[in-house]
Design a protein around this nucleic acid. Structure first.
Length: 439
RNA sequence: GCGGGGAUAGCCGAGUGGUAAGGCGACGGCCUGCUAAGCCGUUUCCCUUUGGGAUCGGGGGUUCGAUUCCCCCUCCCCGCGCCA
């Protein structure tokens, strides 16, 4: 949620932000109008309550002295009627205002590239030496801005789907039978690889000073609404039939809600958490995209970085979270580029977002493996997470970044580390965890 | 799931129809060679802030007035039951 004081005092910031997002500012106008109405009615209502409180105090005093209270009682009852009428109106306006206010997207960082959609995402950094099949060379050069090392390979790299099925590492047909499309059974060495990635990632974050956490995989309505935006409910979130519970789409949600309605101590900031959890996503509207394999699925495991910081520190920690994720993928020896996400592609919650896109030799494309967002005080305001300062309580900033989502990382490993004979070498850092060098 | 007991400010904790004691902590000030102690003040949210309103887990009800009485819900503790 945005700060209502910005709506009152500096609405031009919101108009500019909406413009940069290529979204209508009509919602800002609506919120402004409703807030003005709300304040007028609130004032009236408070004045009446003040009057009522005086009468009630007078009654108490008269009763003590043994004087009559009948006239005052009648008057109090009359005011009560007026108050309840006003209160009803106030509640109606307030809930409408809050609904509109909650839907106003976060204020974009004015340094983010301005463009209406993902085609405006700006590559800002390249790392590694990509293995490129000759048919993909042109696309590769374009998407790497011709500024990334590569090695041409002669054989056509097998897609992860073919490779994994051929080697009996995954069973997609039976998963579809028992659960539906976009589910999977992992088998044999792929299970070991997945668990190895998770354990390695947890140790990695622990060493960086993150407190690792396994959160609840379901949240109640209040927490989910605070941690996400409403459109997420339609597209991505699974609801539990018969209970007011929702399956998490990422451990970001329970980690954000963890400190809701709390006042943190300034000395304890920043709070750095490393969450591990499965992620459940409906992937509504993704029909036709990545329908095969384990690249885009309804359930996967993810290790997530989450930070609560002071407002003045969030920019710096955004960089730290991204650096951690880059270091992690470098250690896996997976080539990638970093893109600065365009304003029109940010989503409602983020103010600034960087994605890491790994190179997928079989697909001949860079695809998202990490998303690092600075949310400013948008989540904190919804979830009422503040910290104590000498000047009073302030809202914290929250940030989140993938460290690793296991399915996408495994697809990247399988595609990047395959040899022409179908062997898959295990990245060096995972070999001790796996207990083997190749699959 | 059943029975019993609970939830009060950052923390602890009194209050059983008349408008939230007290303590601790934190912050500001006074005093003081320094420190400590002592004293005074502040320490939730909202509004158009010399003022007003709301707030005792949440919601509803009774009442001129509810922390207090009644109903519903959530969570915690104890015991019983069930259980990987």
């Amino acid at each position: 949620m945005i700060d209502v004081n910005i709506l009152r005092k500096n609405p031009e910031i919101l108009y500019e932000s909406q413009k940069r997002r290529f979204q209508s500012a009509e919602i800002v106008d609506r919120a402004k109008k409703l807030d003005e109405q709300w304040r007028i009615v609130l004032k009236e209502s408070n004045e009446l309550k003040s009057k009522k409180n005086k009468i009630v105090r007078q009654i108490a005093e008269n009763a003590r002295k043994g004087l009559s209270i009948e006239d005052l009682r009648a008057e109090a009852l009359k005011i009560d009627e007026e108050i309840s009428k006003l209160e009803e109106e106030l509640r109606r306006i307030e809930s409408e205002r809050d609904q509109v206010l909650m839907k106003i997207p976060n204020i974009v960082d004015f340094e983010a590239p301005v463009a209406p959609d993902e085609t405006g995402n700006k590559p800002v950094l390249f790392w590694g030496k990509a293995r490129v099949f000759r048919d993909h060379l042109e696309d590769f050069k374009k998407s790497s801005l011709d500024s990334m090392e590569y090695e041409l390979i002669d054989f056509k790299p097998a897609s992860h789907v073919d490779l994994l099925q051929q080697k009996d590492l995954v069973d997609l047909e039976r998963a579809a039978k028992v659960a539906g499309s976009r589910f999977y059974y992992l088998k044999r060495d792929l299970v070991l690889l997945e668990v190895s990635l998770q354990l390695y990632a947890l140790k990695f974050l622990s060493q960086k000073g993150f407190k690792i956490v396994e959160p609840p995989y379901m949240l109640n309505r209040y927490s989910m609404e605070g941690a996400t935006d409403f459109s997420a409910f339609e597209d991505t979130i699974y609801k539990i039939e018969g209970d007011e519970l929702y399956l998490i789409a990422t451990s970001e949600h329970p980690l954000a809600a963890m400190h809701s309605d709390e006042i943190l101590e300034e000395n304890n900031l920043p709070l750095l958490y490393g969450g591990i959890s499965p992620c459940f996503r409906r992937e509504a509207g993704a029909h036709g995209k990545d329908t095969k394999g384990i690249f885009r699925v309804h359930q996967f495991n993810k290790i997530e970085q989450f930070a609560y910081t002071k407002p003045e520190d969030s920019k710096n920690f955004h960089k730290i979270l991204l650096d951690n994720a880059m270091e992690f993928f470098k250690s896996l020896e997976i080539p990638f580029r970093v893109v600065d996400i365009a304003t029109g592609d940010l989503g409602n919650v983020a103010s600034r977002k960087f994605d890491i896109e790994a190179w997928y030799p079989a697909q001949g494309q860079f695809r998202e493996v990490v998303s690092a967002s600075n949310v400013l005080d948008y989540q904190a305001r919804r979830l009422k997470i503040r910290y104590r300062t000498k000047e009073g309580n302030k809202f914290v900033h929250t940030l989140n970044s993938t460290l690793v989502a296991t399915t996408r990382a495994m697809v990247a490993i399988v595609e990047n580390f395959q040899e022409s004979d179908g062997r898959i070498t295990v990245p060096k850092v995972l070999r001790d965890y796996m207990g083997k060098d190749e699959i």
